[in-house]
Design a protein around this nucleic acid. Structure first.
Lengths: 209, 209
DNA sequence: TAACTGACCGACCGGACGGTCAGTTTAAAC
DNA sequence: GTTTAAACTGACCGTCCGGTCGGTCAGTTA
């Protein structure tokens, strides 16, 4: 098996860099190995020296992107503080991550929503499962502390919060074309107002200032 | 230009049917004209008798799907009644449409979120612009009637509502794999609870029972 | 200096791609 | 029953695809 734990050569790094750019922008099928080679400034054969196949190259950059996301969510989910601040900071941090890593994010979102049956299953099992559980646990903790309304489903709340960030990221180019949606240019503002609406809708009215 | 306003032959209908299935499941690049022909039970050359090119075939099914969606949203946005019921019915109807037309919906969502610069621009200009405006106008009306909080951005509210439906539809296969998200199997329940949270977060606390 | 290794390349392979075309079948109009 | 136009087909074209091959070369290691 190629591309194990050895140090990266300059060419391999260039290949990975070109691949993440191209696959992220155009998807797996629309990218040819010739394009990757040309964009990376190496020969096509050299790619096959470092990676077993096109699929293996794709997997490699997907794996790295998924690890980045997992690390980020772990950090965000660890945060202490009040329920409100935890939710607020998670949403803002998550959207900032999407915004700051658009290539990797596009790649992962595309893969996660792919209808390829088995293809996304691995990603969900190994990555999204634990990510989702972390977010749900924040809502569960808030519920036990009496901040989140008792009748709400924590998993549904987590879906709404994460979904709003992801949808905003996905739809941003589209929203930017719509004159009404001037918030499209200000992700931090979107995140703030989105969380404000969500929390007001989710939190227990009793025990609040 | 082929495929104008003439009546459809049986073969043409079969081609369109196969195309919408294949393009929707696998995307533009991953589908070959040979596959479409085989799936439709016609020769490849026959597809070119009815459509100018692969791109034209794709455009044809995309156009039809977009018109279905536009019609649905117009109907949903016309509804009278209270602000709450209009929002609630819109969200439920929208999600039901996504759920009932998964192939066309997938096609449109994929196209709308594509990063192909010019490619999605036409769709946004001609379809999503008016759809979005319809939804925003519901929120604006609610705001003028005093139901929606004055400090909220109607366009942001519309994005949250529509985004929750779209994200749920996109992520459903994924959510179904997560044991916590048992609501994934019940779109009507998701829609109901989602709207309940959203409205509670958006509505003016004064003037309510 | 000889043996060996990993990085790298140009040329090539079989096959699939989108698209074309000359010609056949079908079916309605006359 | 012939005419006619649309529906339809198999064979074919040039191009690009993912992947492989033999081989070069700079840099270790012995």
């Amino acid at each position: 098996m190629k591309n194990s734990f050895s140090r990266q050569s300059a060419g391999e790094a260039a290949i990975l860099d070109a691949a993440v750019r191209l696959f992220s922008a155009n998807g797996y099928d629309a990218v040819s190995m010739r394009e990757v080679a040309s964009e990376a400034g190496v020969s096509k054969a050299n790619i096959y020296h470092h990676f077993d196949s096109k699929e293996a190259l794709y997997r490699a950059i997907l794996h790295q992107s998924a690890e980045d996301l997992s690390g980020l969510v772990e950090t965000l989910a660890e945060g202490a503080g009040s329920f409100e601040s935890r939710i607020s900071e998670f949403a803002a941090g998550h959207l900032k991550h999407l915004d700051g890593n658009p290539l990797a994010s596009r790649l992962i979102i595309r893969e996660a929503f792919s209808s390829d049956d088995e293809r996304s299953r691995v990603l969900v099992d190994q990555v999204f499962g634990s990510i989702f559980e972390r977010i749900v646990s924040i809502f569960r903790a808030g519920q036990q502390a009496g901040a989140l309304r008792r009748e709400l489903d924590p998993a549904l709340c987590a879906t709404l919060l994460m979904g709003a960030d992801v949808f905003f990221f996905q739809a941003r180019d589209m929203l930017n074309q719509l004159p009404q949606a001037d918030f499209a240019a200000h992700p931090a503002r979107f995140s703030r107002e989105m969380v404000e609406v969500m929390l007001r809708g989710m939190m227990n009215p009793e025990g609040e200032g």
